[in-house]
Nucleic acid binder design. Structure first.
Lengths: 133, 133
DNA sequence: TAGGGCACTTTCCTAAAGGAAAGTAGTACC
DNA sequence: GGTACTACTTTCCTTTAGGAAAGTGCCCTA
C-alpha cells in the first residue's frame, strides 16, 4: 500500500503546536514564570530563587519571554536605579495549557512506572496564584 | 528584598510538565502520530509520508513513542513477514493537549505578527480522526 | 544467482543548547 | 581609593539533537 500524505492543514497544525512548544520550552522558562508569580521581580532575586540557573541563561530566557510578551521588563528610574520583571496578563493564557500538561504528566508517570506519585491538590494553579508562599 | 523560593509542590509540577513535553517533543513525533492516524502502518510508508525524515530518526522516534505506550509495534508473522505500527487508544488522551497547544500557537502568531493566519476549522481533531484523506 | 524490497543500524558530521567561570559598567557606600 | 552590589556579557567548553550516506540481514521473485 502506498503511503498516505497528511493534508496540508495538518502540517499547519503541527507548525502551530511547535510554535507553542517553542515558547514554553527551554529548560528554565517555567521556573522563571513561577518565580515571577510568587513575587520575585529583580534579576538577582530570580536567579537566587532558581537553584542551578546561571546569569547567562537567565538573561537569555528573560529576553525570550519578553519577546513573546509573557513578561515585561521595566526600568525604575529613581535611586538606585532598578530593573523589574513582571509577568503580563497574557501569561495567564498559558495556565490552562500548563495545567493540562502537568495533569497528563502526572498520570503518565503513574501509567509508566505504575506507582503512586501523589500530590496534594495544590497545582500550578496555586503556584501561579498572585501571592505565593 | 530576599528572593522567594518556590514551594516544592511547584517544582514537582514543573517536573510533571517537563515529563509531558519530553513525550511530545522531538521534531517528528507529531508528524508520526498524524501519519499513523491517517492510516499508515508500515515503516517505509510512514517514512514516505513524512518528507525529510530519515530512517534513523524514524526508528528512534518510533521506539520512544512505543516506550511511552502511545503506539504499538506488531509483528505479523505470515509471509512475507510484516511489521505494523498502530497508535494506541492512550494516544487519544493527548488530543486535548495538542488541540490546546495548536490553538494557543495560532493565536500567538496572530498576536506577535499581528497578521491573520486563518485556517479552515479542520484542526488536529480532524487530522487525528480515524480515517484521513 | 542477481536484484529488489523491507526494516532497520552504523558511522560520521554539524548546529544548537546549555553551563562554568570570569569580566564589566554603572552606582553607591565607607 | 577600595570594596560591594546589580544586571548583565563574554569566552570557552561539553552535551545533545538531528541529519546524510552507506551498510546489513533477511526474505522473495525472476
Amino acid at each position: 500500500m502506498a503511503a498516505k500524505k497528511a493534508k496540508p492543514v495538518c502540517l499547519d497544525s503541527v507548525k502551530a503546536v511547535r510554535d507553542t512548544l517553542e515558547v514554553i520550552n527551554g529548560k528554565w522558562k517555567l521556573d522563571i514564570l513561577i518565580s515571577l508569580s510568587i513575587g520575585n521581580e529583580r534579576f538577582t532575586d530570580i536567579q537566587d530563587s532558581i537553584p542551578g540557573i546561571t546569569p547567562k541563561i537567565l538573561a537569555k530566557e528573560l529576553k525570550e519571554l519578553e519577546q513573546h510578551q509573557l513578561i515585561k521588563r521595566t526600568i525604575i528610574d529613581d535611586y538606585p536605579i532598578k530593573i523589574v520583571y513582571r509577568s503580563e496578563n497574557y501569561a495567564h493564557t498559558l495556565h490552562p495549557i500548563i495545567y493540562a500538561l502537568k495533569e497528563w504528566g502526572l498520570n503518565h508517570r503513574k501509567k509508566i512506572f505504575n506507582k503512586g506519585y501523589v500530590e496534594t491538590d495544590a497545582a500550578i494553579a496555586s503556584c501561579m496564584s498572585e501571592e505565593g508562599t
